[in-house]
Design a protein around this nucleic acid. Structure first.
Length: 595
RNA sequence: GCCCUGGUAGUUCAACGGAUAGAAUAGAAGUUUCCUAAACUUUAGAUAGCAGUUCGAUUCUGCUCCGGGGUACCA
């Protein structure tokens, strides 16, 4: 039982005995006492003031007295206005630390066969261009969220739906056929996804040029778009693709393979992965089928031009198109098909879609439609909606080339990490491969932490001209502290310093603060799981590391003569290191043994 | 137009309806005979505006101002 629970239960009993008020212990949440007051935990007594018919001070005093008399963990207390500040018996914290240290998986709840099965969809790229910064945020959030859910006792299936069909792919293919001159990733010495992305941009350039020429001949923009031979060719190619034309399918397959091997490389470096990948080319027909089924049941209706719609006005939304007049499917149709296949493959209890907030409306509609179509999970699917990554100039636009490429960004972060390390002389005497590994860990750590520490719902502004910080609330700051703790522990081991019994030592203020914070880890993980919040974990770890740094500067660890006191400090260091490592791994960030 | 969403120090971010709104960076001033100074200590600086709900509002409600997104045959 955690100290918070003990106090909450104590207060609950106190209130019952003193005033006859029934209060659920779970609703009493002790908070850390502000540092300008004496105490470890604080209870807000206002909720009982009215029923007790006494002043807040009197209520605080009575509850405080009751706790001192009846709860051994409570040493003393003070009351400021309506706030009851409780001081825990100092040596009690040692047993708390001992308890945490004895449980290697403290804070982690393992999943069992009966645990809920959660499917997390993230990444979901198009195959016509490389991954960019927006995808990086998506990937990191999706991966971290999955790790957190696992740590909270869920079975998790990480999945990816690859948008491998549609007009955008045909554009790249067409440009490659017309102007590619048989180039391959090997010949060009380029990652496949980048090569295809180049052709997508190339298509757009020629297309724009064509439009201008047509408009110069007196056409309006709309007319030009309709008359464009290039676009007509792309559409014809899509039609052939849908008809299963062997030549088009062959080219499509080959080029998609190039893209996938490029994506794999990016995912690997980013440290994310998937248990199961779906492709829209496999799911869009399923969706069509499902929509036609809905049409029969009267959930959808057909317009005169043959298009199929759903009327959602009764639910406060609009009419939604599901099949175009030419019978082809739209995004929504594909998502319905994908949902069907997924629930056929897995007994999913909960579905989470990690997708940008620009699609909030889409998921509102999807949830309703799945529900109407009889999918029982539809109503409470979760759209984990995150804000966009913006550049100082505004939104990133891939066709205009104003994107921050994921591969470039990672490379830049790593090389910056290497330079900074070298400047600081950190890497002297290490082998080339060790240097490389540390630069990789630190560079990616900086990037990942930068994107994960922020509330996912908020938009992020990223200025490519300003390098991501390595000081302050950053990944490298945390990694550095970890490496330093590991160094102390290594030295302790070399010197044969073992941890002995320290339970009788009276810990000082900073040591207590650290133990208290370590003890909070379990609660933070659980809360992060409930709120789907990697940011919560990130800021917890940062605070932990800051507390450790303060402790570290105030205490000799290895040089401490008293074996019991030294043991307490070594144990604190060991548990801190372990907690940092665990917390960071929930974010998908590695920590280096030295740096 | 309608719907959703955000507005907190110069900047990047915090704050289950709780105390004097916290950090970090940039600025100013210090600490190195010390287990890794990517550290630590001190200092200055903010809730867009106006009402309301109550013991108490950055948080909840309404209006105004500013930004972002969506809005039926793009994904």
């Amino acid at each position: 039982m955690s100290i918070d629970n003990i106090i909450a239960a104590g207060v609950s009993r106190a209130v019952k005995e003193l005033y006859g008020i029934d209060t659920d212990a779970a609703s009493i949440v002790p908070q850390a006492t502000r540092k300008e007051f004496e105490g470890n935990l604080t209870i807000v007594v206002f909720p009982w003031v009215k029923a007790a018919r006494k002043s807040p001070e009197a209520v605080g005093k009575e509850i405080g007295d009751w706790l001192v008399d009846n709860e051994p963990a409570v040493d003393r207390y003070n009351v400021v206005k309506g706030f009851l500040n409780i001081v825990i018996e100092p040596t009690y914290w040692n047993s708390v630390l001992k308890h945490i240290a004895s449980d290697a998986d403290f804070g982690i709840t393992a999943a069992t066969d009966e645990s809920p099965l959660v499917m997390v969809e993230y990444s979901s790229p198009n195959t016509n261009k490389p991954l960019h910064l927006g995808h990086v945020r998506n990937n990191l959030l999706g991966f971290s969220l999955s790790e957190i859910l696992k740590a909270c006792g869920n079975r998790v299936v990480m999945t990816n739906i690859v948008n491998d069909r549609g007009i955008h792919i045909c554009k790249s293919m067409l440009a490659w056929q017309k102007w590619g001159d048989g180039v391959t990733p090997e010949k060009a010495g380029k990652k496949g996804d980048h090569l295809i992305g180049d052709f997508y941009v190339l298509f757009d350039r020629h297309y724009k040029q064509e439009l201008e020429e047509l408009m110069a001949q007196g056409m309006s923009k709309e007319e030009a778009e309709k008359a464009s031979p290039l676009m007509a060719e792309a559409r014809e190619m899509l039609r052939k693709w849908e008809a299963g034309d062997p030549e088009v399918r062959g080219c499509w397959k080959m080029m998609n393979e190039w893209v996938y091997s490029g994506f794999d490389e990016t995912y690997r470096r980013m440290g994310v992965g998937f248990d199961k990948i779906y492709y829209e080319s496999d799911t869009y027909l399923e969706g069509k089928e499902k929509v036609l089924e809905g049409l029969e049941k009267g959930i959808m209706y057909r317009k005169e031009d043959g298009s199929v719609w759903a009327d959602l006005t009764a639910d406060g939304l609009d009419h939604k198109l599901l099949l175009r007049s030419d019978g082809t499917s739209v995004y929504m149709t594909q998502d319905i098909g994908t949902a069907k296949l997924r629930y056929r493959d897995y007994p999913i209890d909960k579905m989470i879609y990690v997708v940008g907030n620009e699609q909030n409306y889409h998921f509102q509609v999807l949830s309703l439609l799945l529900d109407k179509l009889g999918f029982k999970w539809g109503k409470d699917l979760v759209h984990f909606s995150y804000g966009m990554v913006e550049l100082p100039e505004g939104k990133m636009k891939s066709r205009e080339g104003t994107v921050v490429d994921a591969d470039d960004l990672m490379e830049e972060m790593v090389s910056t990490a290497r330079e900074v390390s070298q400047q600081l002389g950190k890497l002297d005497g290490l082998s080339e491969s060790e240097i490389e590994e540390i630069a990789e860990t630190v560079g990616l750590g900086a990037l990942k932490y930068f994107l994960l520490k922020v509330d996912p719902r908020k938009n992020i502004t990223f200025d490519p001209k300003e390098t991501i910080d390595f000081n302050g609330n950053t990944g490298p700051f945390i990694q550095y502290t970890y490496a330093r703790i590991r160094s102390v522990l290594r030295k302790a081991e070399e010197q044969g310093l073992a941890i002995t019994d320290y339970t009788a030592v009276v810990p000082d203020e900073k040591e207590i603060a650290l133990i208290q914070w370590l003890n909070d880890f379990a609660g933070v993980v659980a809360e992060a799981g409930r709120n789907f919040s990697p940011a919560l974990i990130a800021n917890y770890v940062y605070e932990l590391v800051k507390l450790y740094n303060q402790f570290y500067h105030d205490h000799s660890i290895l040089k401490e003569e008293d074996a019991a006191v030294r043991s307490l400090r070594l144990e604190l260091s060991a548990v801190t290191a372990r907690t940092v490592k665990k917390g960071m791994s929930l974010l998908g960030i590695k920590v280096p043994e030295r740096m």
